[in-house]
Write a protein that binds this DNA or RNA. Structure first.
Lengths: 363, 363
DNA sequence: AGCCCAGGCTTGAACGATAAAATCGATCCG
DNA sequence: CGGATCGATTTTATCGTTCAAGCCTGGGCT
């Protein structure tokens, strides 16, 4: 690059203001503002002239100024969690993408922040909101005894949650995925394919998500009249692939082994698939396996999996936040009874690991 | 909750302004501002009085107003990619977290946006920058023939990249990970453990990352005087677990099978591990396997893996952006020669799949 | 006493956009 | 033909913060 750097600036600078546009179009600032925000108030001819000036100069209204005047930053805050080694398969990236995409449709953006724990998260949320950096925040992965919703309510910060607490969830807006329905639909699918001895690979009791998924399996087994044998087919361990393999081997070695299993996660499911192959059995034909979360790993190995409708969750949450802060500007609380409380049903993605419907139940 | 909702508002509203603080402390707006931004200009006693008022009222300076006045939004934009089914293991979430964490240290935040393709990404970056929503943007996963750096340079948008193009990379700031050094260090590690027949599982030629990793393996083999046999130990296929298993089976069935393999990704590595087990061999003892990217899956199955120092990349990029926009305010370009050009060396994480150092090379 | 000076604080003026009110022309109607 | 009405545009004021300049007050010096 042989310099020549003192030439005229051809690129429009970052600071084209509404006054520049007004001057170029021969009108006042407010007219430009009207063209952009209330076009019907301006004569067609003027409008066109202003629009030309806008695109000629490459004008974009300054967000800070607009936020200041409107006292609405058009921003939504969301904590991004660190990726721990134990986190086998996170769907946080899908969630954040869905949120960003949903926001973009209505000129809102997602602001990321980090926090070491829940308390700090609440604190940061509050600070961001008080500073007018965000008009609302999103809570990701809210668990039954999560302190965050209560804390944010106390601080008066508008929010919506992905997941919900055991108590007090009526007071705030949330969207959640019905884990119970997810494993139940997996059982239904397997029963329809002719399976009757359907096992479950899960985590030890105590986690809400794990318990829901276990319960969905058990309830569906009961519904299909298969409860009697279920206790022999229920094994628990860590949420890892190797654990899945180990548990599956254990099941297959028992008398009256399962012809199909529902795994609480894809990690367990992928592990189970390998155990099946290791036993010289064909996945999907001899033994069917269904996972949970439809992570890329499941797609890669052809594992059927229950997919959470994260994109839908993102859309719902963003829409709800817009409603919340829009309403706030109008009246105060009071109609809080109309909060969002939506339990979404996940969808089973069928792949080779459970694909060929069996006409007759195998021995 | 038995209403009683018309009580006084105990929670401090979102709109505590600097004037409120000033009034409470019995000083002027500017003095409050000085206490916060240039404490040494204010007498200690006054400072303390103001500080008390600040914390009593829960005052946080309004970001929009500050951004407007300083014409610096203290925000950095970054596109979030959708999670495709083919994306076996993304490290984007780690990167975004690192970026957010690094920014937070100096009161900067990350703004997420989405875009369907590179051109649209450039356009959105430009729009965000022109609107003063971000002071700079970050490019993630820049490939050798990526159009984005050129486009952003043309638009005058300050940016830094994770990854770099084949040409013109001297003109902008980037940090990248040395893939070649990564696979080479894996080979070194295996040679030190006594291995001599070290195979490679990779993708077909044509992708920059894949080729670099292949080249690192080959060069290291050469360096250790093992080049002669390398052509028999180099197999390529898709970046999936099942592909990894298939390729590894193929290698193990050849005459003079490898006692160790380097996989271009964790997906291939995990697949290879299963092939090893399927052959009745013990991973790490009979055959060693090393993956790449140190994804959670690798940790879960005990696969040694080459870990990219993403956190370091995030820190470097954020620091560089601050330098860039700070400099911009001062002088114009000109010292662009001092851009960041940093090639980081990844680090091998040793786990059971290659753990026990062998004193004597096995047959 | 009168003057200067400096530290400590306050006042005025931006930053860029927009809601609300004022202005200007032109049209309409009794 | 005068006043009312209405549409199109401009002017004014404001959001909350900070820079630049101004204003006190008290102390030191001549």
């Amino acid at each position: 690059m042989t310099a020549g750097s003192h030439g005229p600036r051809l690129i429009p600078g970052p600071s084209v203001t509404i006054s520049d546009v007004a001057e170029a179009a021969g009108v006042s600032r407010q007219t430009v503002s009207n063209v952009l925000n209330a076009p019907d108030r301006v004569r067609a001819e003027t409008r066109e002239r202003v629009n030309r000036a806008v695109s000629d100069l490459g004008y974009h209204p300054n967000r800070a100024a607009r936020s200041l005047r409107a006292s609405s930053p058009r921003m939504v805050g969301c904590r991004i969690l660190p990726v721990h080694a134990e986190t086998v398969a996170s769907i946080q990236d899908r969630f954040l993408h869905a949120l960003a995409e949903a926001g973009q449709a209505c000129d809102h953006h997602v602001l990321l922040f980090t926090a070491p724990d829940a308390d700090e998260e609440t604190e940061r949320c509050t600070a961001l909101w008080r500073a007018g950096a965000v008009s609302a925040v999103v809570l990701y992965d809210v668990t039954p005894h999560d302190p965050r919703p209560r804390q944010l309510e106390a601080a008066g910060v508008p929010f919506a949650a992905f997941g919900r607490t055991a108590t007090g969830a009526a007071g705030y807006s949330w969207a959640d995925v019905d884990n119970t329905a997810g494993t139940a639909s997996a059982v239904d699918h397997l029963v329809a394919a002719g399976h009757r001895r359907i096992g479950f690979l899960g985590w030890p009791e105590g986690s809400s998500v794990g318990d829901s998924r276990a319960h969905g399996w058990l309830a569906a087994m009961d519904r299909h009249g298969l409860l009697a044998q279920s206790h022999r087919l229920d094994v628990r361990g860590d949420d890892t692939m190797s654990s899945g393999t180990r548990l599956m081997v254990e099941l297959l070695d028992r008398p009256g082994p399962p012809t199909a299993v529902v795994a609480a996660t894809d990690a367990l499911g992928v592990g189970a698939l390998h155990a099946v192959r290791h036993h010289g059995l064909r996945p999907g034909e001899d033994v069917a396996v269904v996972g949970f979360d439809d992570t890329p790993a499941a797609a890669a190995v052809g594992l059927s999996s229950v997919r959470q409708p994260i994109e839908e969750v993102g859309r719902l949450i963003m829409a709800e936040l817009l409603r919340l802060v829009g309403r706030n500007a109008d009246e105060d609380v009071d109609e809080a009874a109309e909060s969002l409380h939506r339990l979404l049903v996940p969808e089973l993605v069928v792949r080779a690991s459970s694909a060929p419907p069996r006409s007759a139940p195998g021995g």
